[in-house]
């Protein structure tokens, strides 16, 4: 280890935040760019499955709430891209990497939203899982990322409650509404567990990320935490978690749950999910179809600058 590396690690070990201008190992920088941009892309791609229901929201109150939520996600994407830029990587470059398939986003957004209950399930489960991850990341070693997480967590927990409230309402509603809620849980439960990433035994980056305190808990720890929080919430709704192996282990105080279908997980990560192509197409079309707008703004700004110069 070089002296710089030793000093860097000593700072990490004392829980002193790393700031953009501080020296950092290239691999640390690269890990952060990968993780934060992936997080930013997830916020942006995550706008699509919910955006899918904005025009069909069943009441004006729900419509406004959903719009506001999706807008928050766009805002989260913006903070996170800014955090990436503090590491010297251009936002548009990371976006192009996502469009080309080189950079990833959370696979959960490759699942379709098929009924209104999915708006509840996404809030409750997907935002719920994201919160478990993000609360842990509030203490991550990189300053800008950690501060972004503090801000984002506040909004996410509001979204999570909003989604859960939507489901409470549906579960207390008509028979069809309750069926929709159960169906949404059936479809989103396992993909939500997959959001925490591969099992610790198959997660090649975990050890280094833990040492750098980019990550504070392992994937399996966080997944367990999520299951423990969520199962009683499903019981309160009167819904059944679609896992016959799920049971409370009285000794450990934790729920035991069935085997995750990792084949499905790796398939979806690698592009073979129900909506991967649609999501990427929607995002890259937005950029492609919008490029003339950016060109116009730049050309106009340039003309204004020239006018000022002449005057």
């Amino acid at each position: 280890m070089t002296k710089a590396e030793e000093e860097f690690q000593a700072k990490i070990d004392r829980d002193i935040k790393i700031e953009p201008k501080d020296w950092m190992p290239d691999a640390y920088r690269k890990t952060l760019v990968r993780q934060i941009s992936q997080h930013a892309h997830s916020e942006i791609v995550g706008m699509l499955p919910e955006g899918n229901w904005i025009t069909r929201a069943p009441s004006l109150r729900r419509k406004v709430a959903l719009l506001a939520k999706v807008q928050d996600e766009a805002g989260h994407g913006l903070y996170l891209y800014s955090a990436v830029e503090t590491l010297g990587t251009d936002r548009e470059q990371t976006i192009d990497d996502m469009h080309s398939g080189k950079a990833k986003y959370s696979s959960i957004f490759n699942y379709p939203t098929l009924s209104w209950a999915d708006m509840g399930a996404v809030g409750w489960l997907v935002d719920g899982a994201a919160i478990v991850n993000q609360v842990a990341l509030q203490r991550t070693s990189y300053g800008p990322y950690s501060r972004a997480m503090v801000k984002i967590c506040k909004e996410e927990s509001f979204h999570q409650r909003q989604g859960y409230e939507l489901l409470i309402h549906m579960c207390n509603g008509t028979k069809e509404q309750k069926e929709m809620a159960q169906d949404a849980l059936n479809r989103f439960w396992w993909p939500s567990l997959m959001m925490f990433g591969p099992s610790d035994t198959d997660s090649p980056n975990t050890a280094q990320s833990m040492a750098w305190r980019v990550k504070r808990y392992t994937n399996d720890d966080l997944r367990q935490q999520f299951v423990d929080i969520t199962v009683p919430q499903a019981e309160f709704l009167g819904l059944t978690i679609p896992d016959p192996d799920l049971k409370m282990n009285e000794e450990t105080g934790h729920y035991e749950f069935g085997e995750i279908n990792w084949e499905e997980f790796f398939n979806v990560v690698n592009g073979n999910g129900p909506c991967n192509r649609e999501r990427i197409a929607a995002r890259s079309n937005a950029k492609k179809n919008g490029s003339w707008v950016i060109d116009a703004a730049n050309a106009y700004a340039e003309k204004q600058r020239m006018k000022k110069k002449v005057a």
């Binding site: 699509l48 904005i54 766009a74 994407g77 913006l78 937005a286 950029k287 919008g290 707008v293 950016i294």
Partner: peptide, 12 residues
């Protein structure tokens, strides 16, 4: 609201 997620740039 139909634009949501499809705007020309994130800020827009």
């Amino acid at each position: 609201s139909e634009w949501c997620g499809h705007g020309p740039i994130l800020e827009e």
